[in-house]
């Protein structure tokens, strides 16, 4: 499918999960396409990186569900920081392991999974709605009942995929991308974007079988978008573009810099974005 077709499947008010972790293997081309669309009022569920920051900066987010928002080499996501400090952005923070269990519970169609993580901390504040559960066995331990993080749609970015939706992650960490896809409870809204679409019979020659960690049981559509994770890392295809990331981060604290950034990279289509950043590299 095309990116336009993917965007046409999304609606205002949806809860959308984005794969990757921090500033690593984020579906950035899809995020950029959402920025150009009329879709807003989103609940964003993410191991937050610049996906969260860009969507916040563009006013697309009505609620965040995250364990953190970071650019890795820049500890705090600056656009997220700015949006939160303006007082306009409701945010539910959960422990990163709780977050994993929330996706897993949704994938398994159960209401919650028990865990010790969260006990005693402020992630269990009354506003979170997160409750505890008492073990029915003799130990009677009272544990956190992490609720299922059910999604209306999910988008993940992988190194290779075939047209039917088998995805391949060639980097060292698949993160939780399969669970984001599994946590979608709406028919037809599980999307993979990929650096390159290859024939199914060539997938196994791209990497060992463990890299084939997204099966087509989990996907409804595939979009080929080379450089689609830029400026986040998408190893082994490319690392993080630190120079670009610094420019992006700097724009959070400077209105003029943001206007320039937006004009050059966000008002253009994906081909225009890729041309602009290729030009940047030539000038370095």
């Amino acid at each position: 499918m095309t990116m336009d077709e993917l965007i046409a499947e999304l609606e205002c008010g949806m809860t959308i999960g984005f794969g990757g972790w921090g500033s690593r293997r984020k579906p950035m081309a899809a995020v950029r396409a959402i920025l150009r669309s009329a879709i807003d009022d989103l609940t964003v569920v993410s191991y937050g990186g610049p996906d969260v920051g860009l969507l916040c900066a563009a006013g697309k987010v009505s609620r965040l569900v995250i364990p953190f928002a970071t650019l890795d080499s820049i500890p705090i996501e600056p656009h997220f920081k700015r949006a939160r400090q303006s007082g306009s952005l409701p945010c539910t923070e959960v422990d990163e392991g709780m977050f994993y269990l929330g996706l897993l519970a949704a994938s398994q169609r159960i209401p919650f999974l028990p865990t010790r993580a969260g006990l005693g901390s402020d992630v269990l504040n009354p506003a979170s709605g997160i409750r505890t559960v008492v073990s029915p066995y003799d130990d009677a331990e009272e544990l956190v009942a992490m609720p299922a993080l059910r999604l209306d749609a999910a988008i993940v970015h992988v190194n290779r995929a075939d047209t039917r939706g088998s995805g391949q992650i060639l980097g060292p960490d698949p993160f939780f991308d399969d669970l984001f896809l599994g946590a979608v409870c709406t028919e037809g809204k599980r999307f993979v974007t990929t650096e390159r679409i290859v024939d199914t019979n060539l997938l196994a020659s791209e990497g060992p079988i463990q890299t084939l960690c997204i099966s087509r049981l989990l996907t409804d559509g595939v979009v080929e978008t080379p450089g689609g994770a830029h400026f986040t890392a998408c190893v082994p295809d490319y690392g993080r573009d630190e120079t670009f990331q610094r420019t992006y981060a700097h724009a959070a604290s400077d209105g003029d810099a943001w206007a320039t950034f937006e004009q050059r990279y966000l008002t253009v289509d994906e081909a225009g974005y890729q041309r602009a950043r290729a030009e940047d590299e030539e000038h370095q």
């Binding site: 937050g48 928002a69 705090i76 400090q85 007082g87 923070e93 422990d95 865990t115 993580a117 969260g118």
Partner: peptide, 15 residues
């Protein structure tokens, strides 16, 4: 609801 300084987030600290 309106932090004076937003930091990185709870990360894995609770667990």
């Amino acid at each position: 609801n309106r932090p004076k300084a937003q930091l990185i987030g709870v990360r894995g600290a609770p667990g």
